[in-house]
Amino acid sequence: MMGLPRTCLITWAALVALLAATLGLAYVPMPGPLNIVLALGISVAKALLVLALFMKLFRAPALTRAAAAAGLFWLAVLFALSATDYLTRKVEPAGDLPAPTGREYQSGGR
């Protein structure tokens, strides 16, 4: 078969099996956020397979691996620092106050 490396074929089979698993598990009712946690876990596994065996990242020079790690590091910073805002923000109900229109201070001035 035109010299298809066995590693590539096994990787592809694993990816397809994980795709079938994530599709099937999505229809199973699970408590809390378990569905999305499992789905993202499977996505991470698939991404690692592609990174390791198709992109050969872990056999790449240290500088290359550092570049890949930097991408993930700054992604983590993006999510973590945003979470410090969104996860700690308390939304206070505004009550009956009308939304500001910008015209409040004009009537008295003229």
Binding site: N35, L40, V50
Partner: peptide, 19 residues
């Protein structure tokens, strides 16, 4: 890489709320 992006988009878009 484009494939990996899709690997993450797939459950976020298509599998949300399926259960």
């Amino acid at each position: 890489f484009v494939d990996i992006v899709w690997i993450f988009l797939y459950p976020l878009i298509y599998l949300a709320g399926r259960s």
